[in-house]
Design a protein around this nucleic acid. Structure first.
Lengths: 177, 177
DNA sequence: AAATTTTTATACAAGTTTGAATATATTGAA
DNA sequence: TTCAATATATTCAAACTTGTATAAAAATTT
């Protein structure tokens, strides 16, 4: 549940309401996380329930839903550090949904498999190019923290690995059909 | 939801009940999927509800829960191919939960970050060694399909990428703290 | 042969995720 | 200025996941 880590990490800097948290996640983590806004509100109420954050303001403008501003508590700061250390220590195995597709390759015709593989190779190549440009922009912008570049590199290294593996797969496609 | 793909793919070969499906998943896909047995029964009832599979036998031995044997239907075979092609075409971005940990690196002391990173490097190295042995075994066993080796290679390539990235991170750790 | 552990088999409650629904304010275009 | 589009802000029902509970047969130990 890295969503609790994110929210506590963000609220660790300043009190915010749900929508602002959503915007920060989208702006700074949008490229490498996939947190749905529905989950943010659920996590906020859970964290509030357990006393890790607390409501400091309910700001109603006109008849719009009230902005509920949350602030991190002392126990929340502890919980944040606990979750952060846990995230640094635990090594969850990465799951590749595409492995499932490969597992059932025998139900595809050779032509189909060939075509799909080429499309994947093309897509990954595009993503690598995109990340390259993205990284150059980031390097030139002094406001982007260095960690952001490390995180882009993370994706870059794995996309390279993916590309090489896909190329091997294409080369040996006859073995699998 | 690759669980529907898995179940349809397995039932595409022969009728089976839930527990047998669980065993097949554990035996053949245990290394690279993470399907909990609870989800299998949920998926089975959903697939039955939509007519993609049907109950062909309810075998009660004594007072144990009845074995409910499912068989794929014509519409299930169609659905299987649809899901398989979808899985081959779509390129879901892989999420690395560790990125979140890196994002908040500034809340860690240098000594801590250093130690955690070295532990991760050690762990990934172990996994690479394990996969190497695993692959050798698989190559010598004529009953293991070639796709299985391709899937191991998939993890291997990505673990290598992870290792190199972690080594870079360790080298440049001072930039991030 | 009695007791313990493991394996077989599923149901289900509790927790979580998701996206659609809701309601209003603000911005920009015609 | 008035209409449409976009941005603000959250709630909630429905779908899904997870692990625990249940129950008994089979295998193993004592």
């Amino acid at each position: 549940m890295s969503i609790r880590l994110v929210i506590l990490g963000i609220l660790n800097q300043q009190p915010l309401h749900g929508y602002e948290i959503k915007q920060i996640i989208e702006e700074y983590m949008g490229d490498w996380t996939d947190i749905k806004f529905g989950s943010i509100y659920f996590a906020l109420s859970k964290l509030a329930e357990s006393g890790h954050i607390e409501v400091i303001e309910e700001n109603r403008t006109g008849k719009r839903p009230a902005k509920t501003v949350y602030q991190i508590t002392a126990s929340g700061k502890e919980e944040f550090l606990r979750l952060l250390k846990k995230a640094w220590c635990e090594h969850k195995q990465v799951i590749f949904p595409f492995d499932m597709a490969v597992f059932f390759i025998k139900y595809l015709s050779k032509a189909e498999a060939f075509q799909y593989l080429q499309q994947r190779i093309e897509k990954v190549t595009q993503q690598l190019n995109f990340l390259n440009d993205h990284k150059k922009e980031h390097r030139q912008n002094p406001y982007i923290p260095k960690e952001a570049i490390a995180i882009i590199d993370h994706s870059y290294y794995h996309l390279e690995a993916e590309l090489h593996w896909l190329q091997d797969l294409l080369k040996n496609i006859d073995d699998y059909l």
